[in-house]
Design a protein around this nucleic acid. Structure first.
Lengths: 126, 126
DNA sequence: TTAAGTGCAAACGGTTTGCATGGAT
DNA sequence: ATCCATGCAAACCGTTTGCACTTAA
């Protein structure tokens, strides 16, 4: 693999943006180098993910979010306001164990988000 | 609301198919009535969801799955083979309580799937 | 001089919109 | 006469593909 300027830019963007859609990564990269094409963003994200440098999470609607593969956490998406909160992975430990024994299922807590109603939205309609 | 033939067909399809994408619902409906347009499927699914007769779940990639709003369960999606298993909602009770106290987050266990590796895929690469 | 990386355009799957027609009240 | 529901076509967003051009090994 060659660490081309484009690839470095994508990685830099992810380090800065924390969680970003391919589209957002592209915009960020294009501020520095406007010629970079979104196709390259997609291809680079796929590559970086194969190298385990990057992960993506499906938040429910629309495009997935990419982030550097560190500090894993669980995503809590509010389906009313769209706000995304985070919780340490450890909150899933118990569930993880249950699913393993009951289904033989190895949970990957980071990959899919949890959906629900966030605190402030829940207060609006008590 | 008027229960038109099209709407009844969509509801019937969901009762029969259990979990289906809008596309799959459409194909099923069109076997009985080929003239029904996919736009109507989308509009009807949205309507039925507002009436709480129907729910949709994001399984990660591609189109969401719709089902009649009964016997709620958690979806376990294998990100290797794509297989979807189900688990009773109660497996999330503990997590649900933790998220409520720690984040004020009201978990909606049915709406988003859990991602991981299913039993048979896990055995292939032990 | 071969292979990998890129940009561009075009296709794609899934979804939404605008608009004109049709039926039920 | 009005309004809701439908079909159709076109636009839309996010993503992937094919292909030609470039560049580094």
């Amino acid at each position: 693999m060659r660490m081309t300027p484009q690839r470095q830019l994508v990685l830099d963007a992810l380090l800065e943006l924390e969680h970003a859609t391919p589209e957002q990564v592209c915009q960020h990269v294009q501020r520095a180098t406007p010629t970079v094409n979104i196709t390259t963003i997609y291809r680079t994200l796929e590559l970086l993910e194969e190298l385990d440098l990057v992960r993506h999470t499906h938040l429910g609607h629309g495009a997935p979010k990419y982030s550097v593969h560190e500090h894993e956490h669980v995503h809590l998406v509010c389906h009313r306001c769209g706000h995304v909160d985070e919780s340490p992975r450890s909150v899933m430990d118990e569930l993880s164990a249950v699913l393993r024994t009951a289904h033989g299922f190895e949970l990957d807590a980071g990959h899919l988000a949890l959906s629900g109603t966030c605190q402030s939205c829940a207060q609006e309609t008590p």
